[in-house]
Simulated scan of single mutants.
Amino acid sequence: MTRQNFIPASSQGSPMVLALIPWWDMGNHDNGELTTDFNVEIDSSEYRACRSFNSGDQVFMSYGKRPNSELFLHNGFVHVNNRSDDVKLRLGVSKSDALVNLKCELLKELGIPSSAEFHLPYTSQPYRPVGNFLAFLRVFNMDQGDLEEWTRKENKEDLLQPEPALPVDAKVFRFLATRIKLILSAYFSSLKEDENMLAERDLSPCLKLALLLRITEKRILTKIVADLEKVQF
Rank of each mutant, 00 (worst) to 15 (best):
L211W: 04
H29C: 11
K230D: 01
C104K: 10
Q12F: 13
S45C: 11
I183L: 08
S190C: 11
L99P: 00
Y47G: 03
T222W: 02
G32H: 09
S10F: 04
D37H: 05
K218N: 13
L137K: 01
N132V: 15
C104R: 08
C104T: 14
N68H: 14
P167L: 11
D143W: 08
E200W: 10
I180T: 05
N75A: 09
L203S: 00
T178Y: 01
S114K: 11
L159Q: 06
E109N: 14
I7D: 03
K230E: 02
A19S: 14
S10Y: 06
K103R: 12
K65Y: 10
K223A: 12
D146F: 07
W150S: 03
N82M: 08
A186H: 12
G145E: 15
D43I: 04
A116E: 07
P126F: 09
S69T: 14
R90P: 14
N101K: 03
E163K: 13
N31P: 00
N75K: 12
I183Y: 01
I220M: 00
E163A: 14
K108T: 11
M61V: 15
C50F: 05
N75F: 15
K95V: 13
W23K: 06
D37T: 14
N54M: 04
D227P: 03
K171V: 02
L184D: 01
F118K: 04
F60R: 05
A135Q: 01
V100G: 04
K88T: 05
R214F: 11
Y187A: 10
S94H: 00
D25M: 09
T178V: 01
F175A: 06
Q161E: 11
S189G: 13
F38Y: 09
H79V: 03
F175V: 06
L209C: 10
A177T: 02
Q125I: 07
M1C: 15
R179C: 06
D146W: 04
V80D: 01
P162S: 05
F6I: 13
Y122F: 12
E193D: 15
D158Q: 12
F60H: 06
M142T: 02
A116F: 08
K153E: 11
S96H: 14
A19N: 06
Y187M: 07
G76S: 02
S84G: 10
P164Q: 05
I112W: 02
M1K: 12
D30C: 09
R138H: 03
I183N: 01
W23M: 09
A226M: 13
R51V: 03
P121N: 08
D37Q: 14
C50K: 06
P162N: 05
L89H: 10
D85H: 09
V59T: 05
L211N: 04
P205W: 06
E70R: 11
E109R: 08
A135R: 01
L166E: 00
D85A: 07
L73A: 15
Q12K: 12
P22I: 07
F233D: 02
S190P: 02
R152V: 05
L73W: 11
G131Y: 10
S204G: 10
F133E: 05
